[in-house]
């Protein structure tokens, strides 16, 4: 896989394109234009960026007010603050009030690594999945990020998009189609399928290569939309492979894994399943890559999880 740029930069470039074409596109920042790679945006279109200072509740409330007047508002703040500090504004002012604000959580998951738990967002899928009228996306690579931001521009409902800040490998071919709520199957496997989201997707794809060398047929689905979940893609994966492994840069509680488990069980589909994410413990100190490695979110770590799961399954 060829290395692209950080999804953060792809987001900023896409937003600038959209804003050049439509004066109603506004960016709101909470002293976050630097971390959001939005300084070029501010230079190019100073009238379309609104600073509210370090005040995330205010950021989201103002975004709702602007959206009520027809503005296409991208409220940009680190995912950790946006979805925790301003949770009630997201729930009430945006989702419940049905204001189509585009909530952009930057440096999501453990992107801030060694800055610690205050700066991690391992709760956002869980918290926001329980809020009615809010779609949730975690794009994997530059292509998914670009398409997610373009989709958000047209999206008639409130939407939350989160991504990280490390350069991401391209996981898609140029002919891929992107649609909110439709997972993308990157590779099919008859033994195991990784259902991955966000920046864990390339690692899952690489794990497929590791497993292939060991004679195991593995596939990967990029589940870029956490809500609404593409249950159809999930069911196909369950029908075509012997075991499923979900992978996410999020707590193992309340995220993609539990969403998939619930969907499968309620449809009467019982498959060997592992939920890989950040366990419910004091998160280890390190960079994003180190934290991923610590919790087995690496090609080798995921391959071992798959082999163990398949071994258990073959004994039964």
């Amino acid at each position: 896989m060829e290395l692209g740029r950080p999804n953060l930069e792809e987001f900023a470039a896409t937003l600038l394109e959209l804003a050049h074409r439509d004066r109603n596109v506004l960016v709101l920042t909470s002293d976050s234009r630097g971390s959001g790679k939005l300084v070029p945006f501010a230079s190019a279109l100073p009238d379309q960026i609104i600073e509210v200072g370090i005040a995330e509740q205010n950021l989201v409330g103002i975004a709702a007010g602007l959206a009520s007047a027809g503005k296409k508002v991208f409220a940009v703040s680190p995912a950790c603050f946006l979805t925790a500090r301003a949770f009630e504004q997201i729930k009430n002012d945006v989702a419940y009030s049905d204001r189509p604000v585009k909530l952009i959580g930057i440096s999501a998951g453990v992107s801030y690594g060694a800055l610690g738990s205050t700066h991690h967002s391992l709760h956002d899928f869980a918290a926001l999945r329980a809020v009615n009228n809010l779609d949730i996306l975690a794009p994997a690579d530059n292509f998914e990020t670009r398409e997610a931001i373009r989709a958000a521009y047209h999206h008639p409902r409130p939407i939350y998009i989160r991504f990280g800040k490390q350069p991401m490998p391209h996981v898609h071919t140029p002919d891929t189609r992107f649609e909110v709520g439709r997972a993308i199957t990157l590779r099919s496997g008859t033994d195991v399928t990784f259902i991955a989201t966000g920046e864990t997707v390339p690692r899952a794809v690489q794990a497929c290569d590791v497993l292939a060398e060991r004679g195991i047929s593995a596939g990967t689905i990029s589940m870029h939309t956490i809500k609404p979940l593409d249950e159809e893609a999930l069911l196909i994966a369950a029908q075509t492979s012997r075991a499923l492994i979900t992978v996410e840069e999020h707590s193992v509680y309340g995220g993609l894994g539990e969403a998939c488990a619930a969907a499968l069980m309620q449809r009467g589909v019982f498959k060997p399943l592992r939920i890989v994410g950040i366990p419910d413990e004091y998160t280890v100190t390190g960079s994003q890559a180190e934290i991923f490695a610590h919790y087995g979110i690496t090609p080798e770590g995921l391959a071992i999880t798959a082999q163990k799961l398949l071994a258990v399954e073959s004994v039964r």
């Binding site: 506004l26 509740q57 205010n58 409330g61 103002i62 709702a64 007010g65 602007l66 009630e88 002012d93």
Partner: peptide
């Protein structure tokens, strides 16, 4: 807003002013 004439859903305190600021800012823009 399900009730005709209501501009914004409220109820949790401390929310209305930020939303009103957004509306006023849109008017200025």
């Amino acid at each position: 807003r399900k009730v005709p004439g209501v501009e914004q859903n409220t109820g949790a305190l401390g929310h209305g002013l930020s939303v009103a600021v957004g509306m006023a800012l849109a008017g200025k823009l």
